[in-house]
Amino acid sequence: MDNGATMHLAVSLFAGTADPSPEPEFSRLAGFVQKAEAAGLDMVFLADSVPASSNDAASRQMPFEATTLLAALATVTTRIGLVAAASTIAHQPYNLARRFASLDIISHGRTGWNATMAQNPREAANFSRPEGFSSGDFRRRTGEYIDIVQGLWNGWDADALLFDQSGGRFHDPEKMHLLEHKGEFFSVRGPLNVARSPQDTPVLVLSGLRESDFDIAARTADVILLDDEPIENAQARYDELKRRVAACGRDPDAVRLLMNISLVTNGTAKPTIADSMEKGFRAKNCDGFNILMPAQLSALDDFVDLVLPALRLRGLFRENYRGTILRSHLGLAGGGDQ
């Protein structure tokens, strides 16, 4: 657990501006994530956008869908958190809950799901929903969807698996729970056919929030990603979100608010960046930052070699990982003492 004295740091990969490289794309990305792990960052976000505009060659992304990429990256890293975006339009909730529960076991408790509250207007048309959803429907549907996923993740108690070979009892049927969800948009009986997550539940990261989404986020999220705002607005937003978290009966520290910032590549940006991060963090604008970065080793090198040492020198970022699971990096409860 941490006491909030140090910030949380994530990097968010986007492609399109990646260096042309003869190296296979996966090896290059693996090198990037391993470097972020060596630097001790909390987590890497893997984007997964279905094209906003199919003609926009510059925004073409890495040749991987994010959850499959996460699984492969999990086998070549050991400590860093791995968070994949996955759309509530593209997946049925049962399938998505399974995928992420499985990823969390593959990664030994380092997985997060990044769900967005913002509807991609083009996406539904590729999933047999050419009419899309109204914003109100989309919000209610997403809230219900998240409840189902988190409910399914809790379907197996931590001590449900017995592995009792001679007694012939693989699991304790009393410790497996049906979900029996019947809602406005979905009905899902459960349980999940994947074991309980090493973190109890994978980390839920919500992004794309408008103020009307704050209640859903306060009730369900472990991490909220927020866009950069002028300092007064950001402070007010931070206080409001934490207030709503408390109103849901949750510890305000049970949700980490990270601010998206862009890294200006090039050594001269160093003092500015470290200074503005310190200022925002000390002013309680956020609990940490998500640095948006092209998937280029040179960009990460700049951050790791120039900005991180400055933050560490000021006592604003921990020297090493304290635990092995993503929840422990983030100072969140869950997953026992791993």
Binding site: T68, A72, N193
Partner: peptide
């Protein structure tokens, strides 16, 4: 179900993606 091992296991697409790297 509780007398068999088949109620829990990896979701196969994530499993095979991990195997792809190994």
């Amino acid at each position: 179900a509780s007398q068999t091992s088949r109620s829990i296991g990896f979701e196969p697409i994530s499993l095979l993606s991990a195997l792809a790297a190994q």
